[in-house]
């Protein structure tokens, strides 16, 4: 399944700094307020194509809020106010004429699984159908491919007609991942995807993510420091709405940090 991915040696070895293409996501001076309360204060960083970008930080640091700003979920969160600019693929997302087209490019996986009360098949076929694909054979291929990538196909291939909301929590989370992949996104946002998933399945999904990054840019928010170490090329550390630092994951874990607070958090000496 994954072998079809066109992986060139140069792509997998490419260092993000020497990447000649402009960053895929540019965040400039981004602030988020709820009501009058500041949640994120003026953060700036870039996310490059084909990397897994980790975001870590204790609860309340604004990680989820940042993801919501990225696919313009602030539009239906009353009181949420976003300032600064986010450019995706070179375009300011605030200026996007059709916000639905923007969201179709961005897959999102929420921390708690949301199996829609549709059949397993319809859950995964929903995004393609929204995009206008009607032919059953085409949908069949997409559904099988996405469920396989989300490491769920073997478990559900005989019960595609049963309700997605009746699967186990961990299965529903993988269904959510399959659904996010079904829209064939350029950008995949994962918000603590593994809190409802067992360790073995988590590892399988992590392997899938490592393959996927060759075609999709991935933003991984996680509370598991070791997960960001295993997966992400670069990692940003957020603390109470401030960006403490962004760096190569490997270097951060070697202790090459600019801010001692990062080291403290990575080593678990942080409350």
């Amino acid at each position: 399944m994954v072998a079809e991915t066109p992986v060139t040696a140069s792509a997998s070895n490419a260092r993000v700094q020497t990447e000649p293409t402009p960053p895929f996501v540019e965040v400039q001076d981004l602030s988020i307020h709820y009501g009058g309360k500041k949640i994120l204060s003026g953060v700036s960083f870039d996310i490059y194509e084909n990397e897994i970008f980790g975001i870590i930080g204790p609860a309340n640091s604004g990680k989820t809020s940042f993801l919501r700003a990225l696919n313009r979920m602030d539009m239906f969160t009353p009181g949420m106010n976003v300032t600064g600019t986010i450019k995706i693929d070179g375009h300011d997302i605030q200026r996007w004429k059709n916000v639905y087209a923007l969201r179709r490019r961005i897959g999102v996986v929420f921390p708690l699984p949301v199996g829609l009360p549709l059949s397993v098949y319809d859950n995964v076929a929903l995004a393609p159908r929204l995009a206008g694909i009607k032919r059953r054979s085409e949908l069949d291929i997409i559904v099988e491919r996405c469920l396989t990538r989300a490491a769920l196909w073997e478990e559900v291939k005989d019960r595609l007609d049963s309700l997605g909301s009746l699967l186990s929590g961990g299965q529903q989370q993988r269904l959510t991942i399959a659904r996010a992949l079904s829209q064939d996104p350029d950008l995949l946002l994962l918000d603590e995807f593994s809190i409802a998933v067992d360790p073995v399945t988590t590892m399988r999904i992590e392997d899938v993510l490592k393959e996927l990054k060759h075609e999709i840019t991935i933003v991984l928010v996680t509370n598991l420091v070791q997960q960001t170490r295993r997966l992400s090329d670069r990692t940003a550390f957020l603390l109470s709405g401030e960006l403490v630092e962004v760096g190569e994951t490997a270097e951060l874990f070697e202790g090459k940090v600019r801010d001692q607070r990062t080291l403290g958090y990575l080593e678990g000496r942080f409350g």
Binding site: L102, R103, I106, F110, L116, R179
Partner: peptide, 21 residues
């Protein structure tokens, strides 16, 4: 609301969210 958000995140328009989910 989580159902609505999940569908909206897939790029569904308001009407598609209502009609499909």
């Amino acid at each position: 609301d989580t159902y609505r958000e999940a569908a909206e995140a897939l790029g569904a328009t308001k009407w598609q969210v209502i009609y499909r989910v």
